[in-house]
């Protein structure tokens, strides 16, 4: 008995020793979670720094940053000017990868559907209710569209995916902007809700005639039919990783709080957005110790540089060179207790 106790004690003790290295705590967006968990496990292997990331949702992540209970937060949507005032101290947004939202549909025998902004907003506003509507048929010459009711599937839970989607819709349709607007949860004019990306994907896969929006990786892994969208330049583009990255080839503001939807890049896919790490500009404001502050800066630097190679295999679009330059500038401007953090 005694031996077992001693052994147990030793085990506990050794676990304690192992955990003695710095452990960082992060919380927020669910969208980049598969990528972050890959990045963090690699980072642990390379540096021995453990990162504990809880994917509780962007809203929860921002709340935790506000309450100073985490070392870093993560969010799919950037914080609006108005909401910035709610934070006790200035924060910075550091984009890590680009995410995209794709339109998936289920039409038996139909592939290569194209949609224009007009038709897309018509469908999601409940104005166009049949697939063989001439407005859809006109842009899809050569495809025989069935006489089938359109069933709109959307997210039931609040989500960054809905935010990016509605941000795009608000840009392309004034009616949408006035009636529905932009947010993580919306008052939907029509359709039904599924919980999570898997919920929406499930509805679309099951119901002939359904259309919905999900994250790119979801559509790809489930081999769903994806619609090509007409972008601002007038080209029909498919959401490939290249076209998603190209959407960020525009003038970026210094603080990186930018909506990339409806990008003017000629080959850019129109429904994309950055996903961000959120930090206090002066990390001491977030109740971080000096060691943690340094470790967080190192981690984020790694994520936006070496760590980018893990993005593509997991269907995330990596940062462009110009975006990386901006990120470096932001990271170099971080301070601790008023002094530059090196």
């Amino acid at each position: 008995m005694k031996k077992i106790l001693v052994l147990a004690f030793l085990c506990l003790f050794s676990i304690g020793l192992m955990a003695k290295g710095i452990e960082l705590l992060g919380a927020g967006a669910t969208f980049p979670y598969p990528l972050y968990s890959k990045m963090f496990s690699e980072y642990y292997r390379i540096t021995g720094v453990k990162v504990n990331y809880q994917s509780i949702g962007s809203g929860g992540g921002l709340r935790q940053v506000k309450n100073k209970t985490v070392d870093f937060g993560a969010s799919d949507a950037f914080v609006s000017d108005e909401k910035l005032k709610d934070f006790p101290a200035p924060i910075v947004h550091i984009p890590t990868v680009l995410g995209s939202v794709v339109i998936v549909y289920n039409l038996p025998g139909v592939k290569g559907l194209k949609l224009t902004p007009d038709v897309l907003s018509g469908i999601f506003l409940g104005r166009i209710t049949k697939w063989n509507d001439e407005r859809i048929q006109k842009i899809n010459k050569g495809i025989k569209l069935p006489n089938l009711g359109i069933m709109v599937a959307h997210r039931a839970d609040g989500s960054g995916t809905t935010f990016i989607f509605s941000d795009y819709m608000s840009k392309i349709s004034t009616e949408w902007k006035e009636k529905v607007g932009r947010g993580k949860s919306l008052k939907w004019p029509c359709g039904m809700g599924g919980k999570g990306n898997e919920g929406v994907a499930g509805v679309v896969k099951q119901i002939p005639g359904a259309i919905g929006y999900v994250e790119f990786a979801y559509a790809k892994q489930n081999r769903m039919n994806v619609a090509a969208l007409q972008n601002k330049a007038g080209n029909f583009v498919l959401p490939t990783l290249e076209n998603v990255s190209k959407a960020a080839d525009v003038d970026l503001p210094d603080d990186m709080r930018v909506s990339l939807t409806n990008s003017s890049a000629p080959q850019g896919y129109p429904i994309v957005g950055f996903t961000y790490i959120i930090l206090y500009k002066d990390l001491k404001d977030g109740n971080l110790s000096y060691e943690h502050a340094k470790a967080v800066k190192k981690l984020v630097w790694w994520m936006t540089h070496e760590g980018q190679k893990y993005a593509k295999p997991l269907d995330y679009a990596p940062l462009s060179e110009s975006a990386k330059k901006r990120v470096e500038k932001i990271l170099n401007s971080l301070t601790y207790d008023g002094k530059p953090l090196n």
Binding site: M192, G194, K195
Partner: peptide, 30 residues
């Protein structure tokens, strides 16, 4: 149930319940 936040107009229409809307929207209600 279909998670549609409106009064259902028929038995076949999607709707939502109190417990369900809380579960759905709580995490991102900022």
């Amino acid at each position: 149930i279909g998670n549609r936040n409106a009064i259902p107009h028929s038995l076949f229409a999607p709707g939502n319940t109190m417990a369900s809307v809380i579960a759905n929207e709580f995490t991102e209600a900022t």
